[in-house]
């Protein structure tokens, strides 16, 4: 039970970061990016090949293999995922593509990139993926439980930092402009906002956060392959966001905690079926999608709806009398 709790909270840590990053894109700016999960994958792969030693053909094939310390891996992951977001954004945002097409294009991109990575063995070891990624401080003399607990604490601290970053953004003029883009981007342009630049910035920013989450995941699990970033993972993040309340950072985190605990980690407690091991993940996907539909239908603003900030200005007249 102790280890279940630790694992769950660790997952809440990185899934929470993922949800906050998506909240920047979807909750604030109203951009539905189904290739979001690819940014996470970019972060994971880059962190992996930076910290892994040289590839050893014929058993493994991958680029780089620099054997650098983990923190450089994390920094590179954030940078690479941000760069990826910027490239995708520059390609598909801002042109006169309707929101509908844009989302379709991101979905196509996500699926095709997954295929490309699986097919191309030389890049990140194809469909086998990266394995035996060295865990940071694993030889520092901690017990197994102690290590797991420490990793959890690190993840939750990072989640806290990301939360503060996102919250500062929400309260800023930048966040306000993003919300105008979500509400009516035509009006936004007509009042002097360069919406392409704004979208590109938030796209890059959100992707970079996903990259951080990806690095945390690969260092935690020690392995990463294309099965870990299918389209259903994007649905999972969307579900977390909608349950909590899109546009609300605390909602995003709590929604993630709820969905991860009850739907993702919880389903692992169901005893497996001997002759059908895939049934549990299948049921998990089914439940998540049904939950998303139910929330959209009956509580579209989530458990914690977006709050409208109060305007804290005392008018000069009112001050006088």
């Amino acid at each position: 039970m102790f280890i279940f709790l630790i694992t769950t909270l660790t997952y809440v840590g990185f899934q929470g970061i993922l949800s906050l990053g998506m909240n920047l894109q979807w909750g604030y700016a109203g951009i539905l990016n189904l290739a979001y999960i690819v940014s996470m994958a970019v972060g994971a792969y880059v962190a992996g090949v930076i910290s892994l030693g040289k590839a050893q053909p014929p058993s493994t094939f991958y680029v780089l293999g620099l054997g650098l310390p983990f923190y450089l891996g994390i920094i590179a992951a954030i940078a690479a995922a941000g760069l990826f977001g910027a490239i995708v954004g520059a390609l598909v945002l801002g042109r006169k593509i309707r929101a509908n097409y844009f989302t379709v294009a991101t979905l196509v991109l996500a699926v095709v990139l997954a295929q490309l990575i699986s097919q191309t063995t030389g890049l990140f070891n194809g469909s086998e993926g990266l394995i035996a990624v060295p865990q940071p401080f694993v030889n520092a003399g901690l017990t197994y439980n102690g290590y797991q607990a420490s990793y959890m604490v690190v993840c939750l601290i990072l989640l806290g930092i990301v939360y503060v970053i996102c919250e500062v953004l929400r309260r800023s003029g930048f966040g306000r402009t993003l919300r105008t883009i979500r509400e009516d981007e035509i009006a936004s342009q007509v009042f002097g906002h360069n919406i392409f630049a704004m979208k590109l910035k938030i796209f890059t920013f959100g992707s970079a956060l996903a990259g951080l989450a990806g690095a945390l995941i690969i260092f935690y699990v020690g392995a990463f392959n294309p099965a870990g970033w299918s389209v259903s993972e994007t649905i999972f993040i969307l579900t977390c966001l909608f349950v909590g309340g899109s546009g609300n950072n605390i909602g995003a985190v709590i929604g993630t905690a709820i969905v991860v605990t009850f739907f993702s980690q919880g389903t692992q407690l169901i005893p497996g079926f001997q002759n059908y091991p895939e049934l549990i993940p299948v049921l998990r996907n089914l439940l998540i999608a049904a939950l998303l539909l139910a929330v959209l239908r009956w509580r579209p603003s989530g458990l914690f709806p977006e709050r409208i900030p109060k305007y804290d200005h005392q008018p000069p007249a009112a001050a006088k009398g």
Binding site: L32, I235, E278, L279, A289
Partner: peptide, 26 residues
């Protein structure tokens, strides 16, 4: 009837896709 933004319908159909896929897998 309840959705104002058409883009929500994309999420709805994506969920439906996931549900049908999962049911077939079951």
């Amino acid at each position: 009837r309840v959705v104002k933004r058409l883009i929500i319908m994309l999420i709805v159909t994506a969920s439906v896709s996931q549900i049908v896929q999962s049911l077939l897998a079951v």
